[in-house]
């Protein structure tokens, strides 16, 4: 069914249909972790890592197990378990393999389980009938878009912090307004 250019899939996921700003996936970490540019980058890398692996594994589970056996109704339960265990596994692995990387990514990993961008991506890959290569590119695009807007918002928030923001707006409300303006800019891709 889907026979679209890989380039298009990547750019759609990263820009036109940005996972965070246009599709509202991964809002919690977007607001929670976007206080510092450095931590945003860390979160972005962790998401890239988990998104890519989770997409590939869930795609294969769907393609070779759930769909052939007519067990589509177990999709949600399977995918969330895969993502949760994957996050655990990655955390253990990174901790052993590269303590430096663990230091950088470690605290973000548990947050990813409830990052709906990962789950949303996994579901979209199979419902939109992407093949394995398209799935991979879709994951890379989604993660790139996620990291990009996360870092952008963090940059804005770092600046906002040193300015005198009206008290009721301070913190999350002003971050949401900034996100709204970013979303306006991203909507410009389709105009």
């Amino acid at each position: 069914m889907s026979e679209y250019g890989l380039f298009m899939i990547f750019f759609a996921a990263a820009f036109f249909n940005n996972f965070v700003l246009i599709q509202f996936l991964g809002i919690c970490p977007f607001l929670g972790v976007s206080k510092r540019v450095e931590s945003s980058l860390g979160m972005g890398m962790a998401v890239l890592f988990v998104m890519t692996l989770a997409s590939l594994i869930t795609w294969m589970l769907h393609e070779f197990l759930l769909f052939p056996l007519g067990l589509d109704y177990l999709r949600t339960i399977t995918f969330i378990l895969v993502i949760a265990s994957l996050v655990q596994f990655v955390e253990l692995f990174v901790q052993k393999a590269s303590p430096t990387l663990y230091k950088a990514l470690g605290i973000f990993l548990p947050l990813i389980t409830t990052n709906c961008a990962v789950m949303g991506l996994a579901i979209m890959n199979v419902t939109e009938g992407l093949n394995i290569i398209q799935t991979l590119v879709h994951a890379l695009g989604a993660a790139a878009g996620f990291t990009l807007v996360l870092v952008m918002l963090a940059g804005l928030r770092e600046h906002l912090e040193i300015h005198d923001v009206p008290k009721p707006l301070a913190g999350v409300p002003v971050a949401l307004l900034a996100a709204g303006i970013l979303a306006l800019a991203f909507s410009g891709f389709v105009l």
Partner: peptide, 10 residues
């Protein structure tokens, strides 16, 4: 039929 556009599924 399905035609390509912005979204991956067209």
């Amino acid at each position: 039929l399905r035609v390509g556009s912005y979204s991956p599924a067209g």
